[in-house]
């Protein structure tokens, strides 16, 4: 047997050390770098229950980098359970967290994100309905214009309807023109509604 040159021992960072551990346990490590790497790892190879563990950690997580890693991991896992785990964060007091949660949902495939967001259109909380409209409005789905039209025609809150107008104007959905007119008729005294509907109408005609 010939001599084998001994390789230098690789440097081990705290995060690397955490990699040898159960990643679900590492999510609760005191070191933010270990938690961040654990979340990253779970996003790439999620064991059963990873979605719930990530969401549980996110509830208490104060480190911005770990939060981002968790939401990225959930977006990458992209199962219905991952989407469902993110939804409760849409109404958190922390604006940065709720906006990041919405972005994470929007990164998921439409067949996962849409079923998580659609029920929110009927939620009692106006802000959640607005998030649902913004989320659904950004998805590429054949029913997208129909979802938004329903909001403009029926939602009782003007800001939810306006969120739908904004989403339609951004992507262009001329088929929703009659719903735009309905919204304008439902809120006839609101100068902003009139402006938004006019702007959307013009953008459709310009396409």
């Amino acid at each position: 047997m010939g001599l084998v040159k001994k390789k230098a021992a690789p440097e081990v960072s705290p995060a690397d050390a955490g990699g040898a551990r159960d990643p679900l346990a590492a999510l609760e490590d005191a070191d933010a770098a270990v938690r961040r790497d654990a979340a990253h790892g779970l996003g790439h190879s999620p064991p059963p229950g990873a979605e719930a563990a990530l969401a549980h950690r996110l509830q208490a997580e104060g480190d911005a980098g770990v939060r981002e890693a968790i939401l990225t991991a959930l977006a990458r896992i992209a199962t219905p359970a991952a989407a469902a785990a993110i939804v409760p964060f849409l109404d958190r007091e922390d604006a940065a967290l709720r906006n990041a949660a919405l972005e994470s949902l929007q990164q998921m495939p439409v067949e996962v994100a849409a079923p998580a967001l659609l029920p929110l259109l009927d939620h009692a909380d106006t802000d959640l309905r607005i998030f649902a409209v913004q989320g659904l409005g950004s998805l590429v789905h054949p029913d997208r214009a129909e979802w938004l039209a329903r909001v403009m025609e029926h939602d009782c809150d003007v800001n939810v309807g306006l969120a739908a107008v904004e989403a339609l104007a951004e992507a262009g959905s001329p088929e929703a023109l009659s719903s735009l007119e309905t919204l304008a008729r439902r809120f006839p005294d609101d100068a902003f509604v009139a402006f938004a509907v006019d702007a959307a109408r013009s953008s459709f005609r310009g396409r």
């Binding site: 604006a95 940065a96 709720r98 906006n99 972005e103 998030f131």
Partner: peptide, 11 residues
């Protein structure tokens, strides 16, 4: 505005 991507209004 309050709710915006990348950085919210409070921040």
């Amino acid at each position: 505005d309050v709710n915006m991507r990348k950085m919210d209004g409070y921040t």
